[in-house]
Nucleic acid binder design. Structure first.
Lengths: 114, 114
DNA sequence: GTCCTATACCTTACACTGCAAGGTACATGG
DNA sequence: CCATGTACCTTGCAGTGTAAGGTATAGGAC
């Protein structure tokens, strides 16, 4: 029943998806994984081995800022928040995505032959 | 004025885009490049160094079938047509794309916080 | 003649990315 | 005890676009 999405699509959507989720406030890796599943109605399920490197890259590039926290259950978590630079990147990613999406929808439905 | 799309997005859209263009009938590399530009209203501009390997992969995987032709101007062209297997792949790619797009739009506009 | 542009195809070195698989650690419940 | 859930991390592999280069023909400008 699960339709695994091809990996290039995961690669293309990971950054905008994470940045976008963080516009709703701070979050951490494990929770982001659940959010992605929720947002997609269960259709998308990211692996943690893919997400953590993404978060590290985003932090390295200054698009998000992380801070460690210790829950009362004694678990450590790394919370991330969106930076101003991250907001700018999100806007660009969204524009790029929509440009490509528009062209795809055009080629699917609009079926204009030349 | 040109907004280059990040490469992961190109990678994610290349296969469905090419397959989709070929649903309109046979085409060849150089023409596909112009079609992509046209379909996107000039926003997308693929490099040929990226497209030709894509076409070779699609042919290797049996999603398209190619045949060489010689124009009356003495130019050689390799025409590609969509195979049945390619149609199936296109349908899956489209479903995957829309699932991801839906999740992204959800995270952008729907802004549901949990 | 020479040069530039357009057409039309191809390849290689490089950096990047997800995937699969493995690891660490603690809490809870059977 | 041991399985599950939480919560983080890393490595080797295969696949991908980019940038840059190559080959070749046709047509127009100068």
């Amino acid at each position: 029943m699960k339709k695994p999405v091809y990996k290039e699509l995961v690669a293309a959507s990971s950054r905008p998806m994470v940045l976008s989720i963080l516009t709703g406030g701070e979050s951490y890796g494990y929770e982001i994984l659940k959010q992605v599943k929720l947002l997609s109605g269960g259709e998308l399920e990211w692996s943690d081995g893919m997400l953590y490197p993404v978060l590290h890259r985003l932090e390295r590039d200054g698009l998000v800022a992380g801070r460690w926290e210790l829950t009362d259950q004694g678990r450590r978590r790394k919370y991330y928040r969106l930076t101003d630079r991250g907001k700018g990147q999100l806007a660009r990613d969204r524009a790029g995505w929509r440009a490509v999406h528009g062209a795809l929808e055009m080629s699917w439905g609009g079926g204009r032959r030349v």
